[in-house]
Amino acid sequence: MNCEQMQTLFSPYLDKMTNDVENEAIAEHLGECELCAHKLEEMGRICAMLKNLDTPQLPINFGESLHNRIGHEKIKIFPGSPLGVPKRTGWIAATVAGLAISAGIFTSSYLPYGAMVASLQDWMNKDNRPHIAVVDNNKILQDWINKHTEKVQTENGDQITNPAGQTGNETPGTTKPGNNTGIAPTITKPVQVALQEKVEQNYTAKIQVDDMDKSMQDVMQLAYASGAQISVKSANVMAATTENVKVVTMQVPKDKASALLSELGGVGVEAPLQNSVTYTEAYTENQKALANLDENIQKLQSSASLSDEQQTQLQNLLKQKQDLQAKQERIDKAVDSVTIEVRLLGKD
């Protein structure tokens, strides 16, 4: 290796970047070549001086100037704050808000807005609302018991199941599945034999209920739907028991009575629906007079021969009978409503 080749190793040799073989070759060469030894020493001195060159101080305003420039660059590079990913609390808040909104929507679908609106309309038209009266409970109940006792016993004491209904074309109340009371109601309509003779028609129904308010609401809704005039009576103490009772009395148009009775069966009727006919005094007298007339007419007609006086009497009796029958028809026609009493029996 000549001197020129050897001198190319001086630089890495000074930086300790030569291997052992190179180091040995350099050492051997330096022992023989004084010029190369001088060159190596000179190069080492130059490197040392380069490390200690005098460098001017950083300008005082360097940092400030750079700060201003970076500020301008930031506007270009970061024109807006990037949208960060919400933290955990943000997600939790969003979830809670979503659940609250969902619950609100779900609940609102079940709120009785329709009933609220209907109540508001009723209040606005309160003059047209059915009259509801709360009266002395004990007195009403006692009257009802007395009346009930009277009504059940008709003149001839007969009670039969009415398969055809009482109002002609309308379908009578039939058995319907029980409601929440679990009682399958059996509605039996006892009717008086002499249908044509009734002047007032009354029905009574007992309903055993779990939820008095709900059942009362059901009954009232049915009554309103039938256009009934309603009165409500409450009783906390019944004569014989301690049952909580509410009595709803309805005056129902004759043509809607049967349908309403049928619907009430759906509410749940515990006792057989009882029917009774009340006779007015005038009607009773009219009936008696008619019976007497019939009796007298039959006597006269059964005679083999009648005198002229008897013939005249018979004609008069027949004419009186016609008048009484006409009067009875007028009374019957005057009856255009049916009274239904519904007794709701609470369990406690």
Binding site: S11, D15, I46
Partner: peptide, 16 residues
């Protein structure tokens, strides 16, 4: 390595 070596030799030559 080679570039440093070359540069130092040139600089040394200039100084000399």
């Amino acid at each position: 390595k080679s570039r440093i070596s070359r540069a130092r030799i040139i600089l040394q030559k200039k100084l000399t």
